[in-house]
Design a binder for these strands. Sequence first.
DNA 1: TAGTGGTCTAGACCACGTG
DNA 2: ACGTGGTCTAGACCACTAC
Lengths: 250, 250
Amino acid sequence: MQISEIPGADTGGPLPLYKEVKRLLTQSLAAGEWAPGVALPSETRLAQRYRVSIGTVRKAIDELAAERILLRHQGRGTFVASHNARRMLFHFFHIVPASGAREQPRTELLSFARARADADSAARLNIAPGAPVFRIRNLLHLGGQPVVLDDITLPAERFPRLSEKIFSGRDSTIYQLYQERYGINVVRSAERLSAALADRPSAKLLGVPAGSPLLRIKRIALSYHNLPVELRTSLVNTAEHEYFSDLGKD
Amino acid sequence: MQISEIPGADTGGPLPLYKEVKRLLTQSLAAGEWAPGVALPSETRLAQRYRVSIGTVRKAIDELAAERILLRHQGRGTFVASHNARRMLFHFFHIVPASGAREQPRTELLSFARARADADSAARLNIAPGAPVFRIRNLLHLGGQPVVLDDITLPAERFPRLSEKIFSGRDSTIYQLYQERYGINVVRSAERLSAALADRPSAKLLGVPAGSPLLRIKRIALSYHNLPVELRTSLVNTAEHEYFSDLGKD
DNA sequence: TAGTGGTCTAGACCACGTG
DNA sequence: ACGTGGTCTAGACCACTAC
């Protein structure tokens, strides 16, 4: 269980030991050895398992904690980050009121369909063009008003037997569904933003005049090892809300 | 030079030692003890100066390096981050071509004026309402086309004797001017984005029809200790460019 | 060759959470 | 009382850079 997991440890390979430990930890996370929300073995035990010193394990965990993949709690242990409404709100949902406090959005499912990936989506999801995908459309309400129109594309292969019933029957956030039912933990997202004009259907759904300015967000959600999991295009009415970028902040 | 700089170090105060060292380092940076681009004393010397172990100094520097306030170079030393065209492009300029590589913008000064801070600007800059400010308007070109219209507000008090001649006569980026002439090092920015329609003057400057959708970015630039330095509102034509958010990435 | 930061180890002690 | 992560120390060795 020990040496065989650390190829190159004896030879003093070019990769730092703590990077190797980090890779092994990530591998175990991706394999589901420790489920979201549960505690990892203590640092002492991990040091024994990988045959390194505690300091080396700590440095590996430090990086995973900085990426919010692991959470440390003094006196309790180190835990696998788990999706819940609060984490979604603060780490993955960047729309905030222009003035006032963050608020939990209410989701309204508009449509759920099977389709085939176009060339661009396929490339970004790292699947074959034409491969089966799910296409889901959601309307998000903030303060009782429709504010965000989401179009989600999921690679069907990674979500076996997903159905509209299962999707709409979830009791919490979408990422929590991915996590609990499919063992897919979204740990990071990357976004590109632009401005657009509301076409008629979008305008109607968002309750604004056609031709209103909307913020368009193209997001890719990634799991461990940067595995692409979901594409999402959002149209946002920024009349009373803004996109908040806390780049560079803790 | 040593003990007196570390109040609470002997009493074992509640603040971790490395946080105290980090604070002292930041203080020295803000005071200009080490100018941008120069090397700090070696870790060994800093450990002696603050009467702590090297490991403690390293942890303090680790955090400052993670915030891109310091840069470490193995074998050379640890350096104060310095503004240049490349750093601006990758860490502070978030507009990228929808397809293609990042590009250095060309800046065209449209206007330079003195004014008085309105209530909102004053609050965000932490100055008195009505305090003198500079208002600067720039047009940024990418690929030969006007793409970004910047409105900059500077607290005049922090930029003594700044003039249009000095501003337009700079030989490099704006942040480099702040750094070299006023000893103000911008280390972080926070941004809020929304969508807007181009009014006639903006549309004309950006070469788009009035009513075109534009991305509006409201940015505050901060120096050490989160000191506000500059407000900037950008209007971006996102027909061929996007705002790139690398939230959560190294 | 000398000096720098980077890695790794080993162990002591502290702060926190739980029982 | 016990186990956890958090801090701090001390020192060895490596990798890189400059001279």
